[in-house]
């Protein structure tokens, strides 16, 4: 059952060297404060899972915390991840790429206790199929050939949400992305929220995650006003910091000071 905790304590309790950690969320729903708290903890050898890793993923890779990145899309402006892939700085980065639907299906399989997920499209006919971790299976009913994807079961999912109630139920808000799928698939979940309320007001079509699916909740300052994830996928000020090793290094030192 979810407990409300200071963010630094929550990260200390849940983030360990070598862990597989999912960071999910788009636009204003990015777990930015949690990423900074993880940077301060200086974990090593993480497997970072993120459908669109965003600045949080870029920071963790640039800080040398990540051994392997599992992702679907790298927005422009994430220069630390590109530097690691092209120049091996600060360390070589192993990658595993999947389609967006493939990531969602892998989480859903993990959340359901299934060993693998299937999709029909997204790998067939592409060069990715031969390079990533997938296989082909035949449907026992129709004979159709499908792509099988291993289930994702991260050690920890980290997401940001609008609010929680005192019992630890969480109302997501913002572009849904695959935050729900990641939380339900992970063995443990850390959710940052902007406020804790006595009771959640029912909101049309708002996703509520039950307290039993969440380990720790931390309150953080509100994200900037919601914008469409698409319009400004990566904050331009972040692209500026990310684009230069020296600027990034001093940014990191400041964050950790």
């Amino acid at each position: 059952m979810a407990t409300i905790s200071p963010l630094a304590d929550a990260v200390d309790a849940l983030v360990h060297d070598g862990a597989e950690i999912a960071f999910e969320g788009l636009g204003a729903a990015v777990p930015a404060a949690a990423a900074r708290a993880v940077l301060r903890r200086r974990p090593r050898d993480l497997t970072l899972v993120g459908t669109a890793p965003g600045p949080a993923g870029d920071q963790l890779v640039g800080a040398g915390c990540v051994r392997k990145l599992v992702f679907s899309r790298l927005d422009p402006g994430l220069h630390r991840i590109r530097d690691a892939l092209v120049a091996g700085w600060p360390a070589p980065l192993e990658i595993e790429e999947h389609t967006q639907a493939g990531m969602a299906a892998r989480y859903a399989a993990g959340a359901s206790g299934l060993p693998f997920a299937t999709v029909r499209d997204g790998y067939t006919g592409t060069d990715l199929a031969a390079l990533t971790h997938v296989a082909t299976v035949r449907c026992p009913f129709t004979g159709a050939e499908l792509t099988a994807l291993p289930a994702l079961r991260p050690d920890l999912a980290v997401v940001h949400a609008r609010r929680a109630d005192r019992a630890g139920n969480v109302q997501l808000g913002g572009a849904p992305g695959v935050r729900k799928e990641a939380v339900l698939a992970a063995r443990r979940a850390l959710v940052t929220v902007e406020e804790v309320v006595d009771e959640l007001e029912p909101e049309h079509a708002a996703v509520v995650l039950p307290a039993f699916a969440i380990t720790l909740i931390a309150v953080v300052p509100a994200a900037p006003p919601d914008r469409h994830a698409c319009d400004d996928a990566v904050d331009r000020s972040w692209a500026g910091v990310s684009g230069d090793r020296v600027r990034f290094t001093s940014w990191l030192e400041e964050i950790r000071a």
């Binding site: 459908t51 639907a101 969602a104 299906a105 859903a108 997204g122 849904p176 992305g177 799928e181 994830a229």
Partner: peptide, 22 residues
């Protein structure tokens, strides 16, 4: 990104888009 006509829609997450395409 799971939006319908620019609006975030819980009923149109990334997984729903894949279902609609397939």
């Amino acid at each position: 990104d799971g939006t319908v006509d620019g609006l975030p829609a819980a009923t149109a997450g990334v997984a729903d888009l894949a279902c609609w395409l397939q």
